Structure formats: C-alpha cells, structure tokens
Computed example of a mutant assay.
Amino acid sequence: MRTIIVDDEEPARLVLREFLSAHEEIKIVAECANGFDAVKAITDSQPDLLILDIQMPKLNGFEVLELVDRPPSVIFATAYNQYAVKAFEVHAVDYILKPYSKERLTEALDHAKEHLKKKPLPVQELAAAVGMRSTPLERILVKDGSKVHVIPVDKIDYIEAQDDYVSIKTEGKTHLKQERMAELEKELDAAKFVRVHRSYILNLERIARI
C-alpha cells in the first residue's frame, strides 16, 4: 500500500516509520509535517493510505480531507479521543490513540486492507474502543478557485441556505460553500448557533453585539 504519513511532531513520525518498517506491503511515498504539505502530497502521489494526525498547525486533519477531491483510506492517529465521531463520519477506517503499540497499528492496517477490498468494518465496532464524543467546529474552510478561505465560526454573523450550498455572512463579506444546511448545523455549537428558519442559522453572540 502506497502510504503517506502526516504529523507535525517529528518524534511521532519516527515512531510510526519504525513500526511500519515491519510491514513489507507498506511503501511510504511521502511524509508531511503540516496540512498544506499533506494536501499537495496527496494530490501529487495519489496514495492508497493516509495515516493522519488531527491537531496540526495551518490545517487540521479534517480540513486536509476537505481540500482533497478523492481522499484515500484514512487512519487517524491522535492523542485526543473527542474527534472520533467526526472521524468515522468522514469514513476513516480506524482511529488510534497515541501512544499506540505495534499491535494496535497492525490492527488498524488490517482494517485499511479490508477497506481497500471494499469490505469496511462497521462504524460501531471501530468506534467502541475510543469512547466517541463530538466536538463543534471552530472554523470553516471555503474553496474559492485556487484559494482557501479560513473562517473562524465566532466571526460568522449568520448562514443562509441556498439549495445544496450555504451562504456564510461574516464581517461584511459573503462566502458560498457547497454543503447542505442540515449537515453544517450538526457541526456547529448549539449553544452559540440557532436555526431560526429553515433557511437561516444565526450566531447568537453576534446578535448580542448589535
């Protein structure tokens, strides 16, 4: 399996590379220390497998996948279990918590092989060991041609539904993102964002400042 390693911590990449050396079927085609390099490497190399950290500078692991047109099979390797729900929503084949053992990595690689054979394991089975909890979005990415706009959610005034898109109003600007309103609503903090109409979500904190 052609594999890319993405982690902003060099010691973590060294450990992972050592563990992977025991697997002859794994060929590491790139190593990346940040999200932007990862997007480029995935686009250029078209790997079979991505072993991806979540908390990284510039772009986090989920944002990397959002910017890739055809993401490969993904194993998330992270020190935090609160992202497990979202990991399986983006069809990760496994989610391993640092520090992990050689045996746990081997198990994750077996899941990746099954996924590549079009026999993915049930999400419930994969998630059971990590205590799934969801965490609200902190920022939203919007692709605009070759540019990427990073919008902190606390800067959003309101969001308007437009068919299969959402129009995000922030600081006097409008950004159009291809995502359904219902899906975006699930990812926002319900204590800060409220859907007041089938077509509108308001940021309560921004209203308080008017």
Score class of each variant (00 low, 15 high):
residue 2 R to I: 01
residue 6 V to L: 05
residue 8 D to A: 05
residue 9 E to F: 10
residue 11 P to V: 09
residue 12 A to P: 00
residue 14 L to Q: 14
residue 20 L to W: 08
residue 21 S to W: 09
residue 36 F to R: 11
residue 40 K to G: 01
residue 40 K to Y: 01
residue 43 T to E: 13
residue 50 L to V: 07
residue 53 D to L: 05
residue 53 D to M: 04
residue 56 M to D: 04
residue 67 L to G: 10
residue 67 L to K: 09
residue 73 S to D: 01
residue 75 I to G: 02
residue 81 N to Q: 11
residue 82 Q to D: 03
residue 83 Y to G: 03
residue 84 A to W: 07
residue 87 A to L: 03
residue 88 F to P: 07
residue 89 E to G: 05
residue 89 E to R: 04
residue 91 H to V: 06
residue 94 D to Y: 02
residue 99 P to H: 01
residue 101 S to P: 08
residue 102 K to V: 02
residue 104 R to P: 02
residue 104 R to K: 12
residue 105 L to M: 10
residue 106 T to K: 06
residue 110 D to P: 01
residue 110 D to K: 14
residue 114 E to F: 08
residue 116 L to Y: 00
residue 116 L to W: 01
residue 118 K to F: 07
residue 119 K to F: 12
residue 119 K to V: 12
residue 119 K to Q: 15
residue 120 P to C: 10
residue 121 L to F: 11
residue 122 P to H: 07
residue 126 L to P: 05
residue 126 L to N: 10
residue 128 A to P: 00
residue 129 A to Y: 06
residue 133 R to V: 10
residue 144 D to V: 12
residue 147 K to D: 10
residue 153 V to S: 00
residue 163 D to R: 15
residue 164 D to C: 11
residue 166 V to C: 13
residue 171 E to P: 02
residue 171 E to F: 05
residue 184 L to N: 14
residue 185 E to G: 00
residue 187 E to S: 09
residue 190 A to F: 08
residue 193 F to L: 08
residue 194 V to A: 12
residue 194 V to D: 03
residue 195 R to K: 10
residue 196 V to M: 13
residue 198 R to G: 11
residue 199 S to N: 14
residue 202 L to N: 08
residue 206 R to P: 00
